[in-house]
Simulated scan of single mutants.
Amino acid sequence: MKVRDIMSTKVVTVSPSTSVRDIAGLMVERHVSGLPVLNDNGTLVGMVSEGDLLRRPEIGTQKHRRRWVSFFSGVDEQAREFTKSHALRAGDVMTEQVIHVSEETPLGEVVGLMEKHNIKRLPVLSDGKLVGIVSRADLLRALAARQADPLPPPAKSDATIRAAMNDVLKNEEWAMSAMVNVIVSEDVVHLWGVIDSGDQRQALRVAAENIPGVTAVEEHLSFSLPT
């Protein structure tokens, strides 16, 4: 799937002159955790997130540095912190270096960007203009929709299930060290052998459960002795 398949196209935006108070109100009212900032030409110039509004003197959450700590932090850093916590408009609290994606970006790449940069949402641009936003919530909705799809047809035989499980053992890097024999009887997968860890055991069970036609998984596994 790609971004265009799940993105939200009705995006609430603000301008650089929008007040911090109005931004907070919009986030609460629209149940969003971040807002794109557009200039008068409709160009994306930044993002304001919940994190940008956490350190505020209005609610007593601004940073209070001890004098000796301030000595080791640069003047510029202290100035930026003051601006972020005391600014009145979006243009002064927003993050200017915005990571964005296109409508054709694969969802795997989206998740990778979210994990790498610890962000919850990504603006979607087309020809430099904002056309949508994709968030963690959109990814969860996509997952929920796929879970509601009809299940794939069951495997035709125990032999087919066994072949599919053996493919996992041969092709998944985490499984290659496992000395496991797979026996399938009446759609029940029996795993016999020696494994390295509990994580490996869990992954083997999950792999078996994902094979169409499997009704149960029985584990007969032991751990290898440390060398």
Rank of each mutant, 00 (worst) to 15 (best):
T43L: 14
E29C: 07
R66A: 09
R65Y: 15
G34R: 05
F72K: 04
E58V: 13
G34P: 02
E29H: 13
H31E: 14
P16Q: 02
P36V: 02
R30P: 04
D52C: 09
D40Q: 15
G46D: 00
D76E: 08
R66P: 03
A24I: 09
P16A: 09
V48H: 00
A24W: 06
M47L: 10
R66N: 01
V20G: 04
R65T: 06
R67E: 06
V20D: 00
L44G: 05
T61Q: 14
V12N: 09
I23Q: 00
V69W: 09
V48C: 07
G74S: 15
G74A: 01
M27K: 03
L53V: 07
H31R: 15
S19I: 08
S33C: 12
D76H: 05
N39C: 05
H31Y: 11
R30K: 15
G46H: 01
T61V: 07
I59C: 10
Q62H: 11
L38P: 03
D22C: 10
S17G: 10
G60Y: 08
R67I: 07
D76F: 05
Q62V: 06
S73L: 11
R55F: 10
L38N: 01
L35A: 04
A24F: 06
L54M: 14
I23F: 08
V28N: 14
G25C: 08
V20W: 02
V12P: 00
V75N: 05
H31T: 08
T13F: 03
E50N: 11
S70T: 11
G42V: 07
R21S: 13
H64S: 05
P36E: 02
L54V: 15
N41A: 13
V45K: 02
R65C: 07
N39F: 07
V28Y: 13
G60S: 11
L38M: 11
T18R: 07
